[in-house]
Computed example of a mutant assay.
Amino acid sequence: MKHFIVEINYLVPVDQLSDVLPNHRAFLQTGYDRGLLLLSGPREPRIGGMVVARANSLEEIQEFFNNDPYHLQKVATHTFIEFNPVLHQPWLDNWVKG
């Protein structure tokens, strides 16, 4: 299992996201339900968001986020940073090892 930080950068002011935000959060929930996502939330200041994710490959997580309403509505971009979680809290062991 590969691990990723997904950086979401808004292309529009945050006040223009109110219509798509509920769909974006519903989309993220599908990632939690599938076990792809560990945590997510907006950045401060509100210029985007951050996600900690895992998948079998970079292509798999990119394909998942290609269905993000933010991507589909062209209001944000996604940057994928792969990393190796060498150290982690013991209670995350099952998630990290996949």
Rank of each mutant, 00 (worst) to 15 (best):
T30Q: 08
D93P: 01
P42H: 04
K2G: 09
P45S: 06
H78F: 13
K97C: 08
L58W: 03
I8E: 08
V51Y: 05
S18A: 11
D15A: 08
P22M: 13
T30F: 10
A26Q: 15
I81V: 13
V75E: 00
G98M: 08
H3F: 13
A76P: 10
N23M: 14
D15I: 14
E63N: 10
L37F: 12
N66W: 01
L58A: 12
N67F: 09
D68T: 12
K97H: 07
L38W: 08
D68L: 08
F4D: 00
L36M: 11
F80V: 11
K97Q: 08
A53T: 05
K2F: 10
I47H: 08
S57I: 02
E63R: 08
L21W: 04
R46W: 07
M1E: 05
T77S: 15
E44F: 06
W91C: 10
T30M: 11
N67Y: 09
Q73M: 13
R54N: 01
D19G: 07
M1S: 07
I47W: 03
V86Y: 02
K74E: 13
P22H: 05
R54H: 01
A53G: 11
P42D: 05
R34A: 15
R46N: 07
M1F: 05
N67M: 14
D15Q: 09
I61L: 00
Y70C: 14
H88L: 04
Y32A: 01
V51C: 09
R25G: 10
G49I: 06
N23H: 15
T77M: 14
Y70W: 09
V52K: 02
L11M: 09
I81F: 13
H24Y: 03
E63C: 03
K2T: 10
F64N: 04
L92F: 14
R25Q: 13
I81Q: 11
N23T: 15
E59A: 11
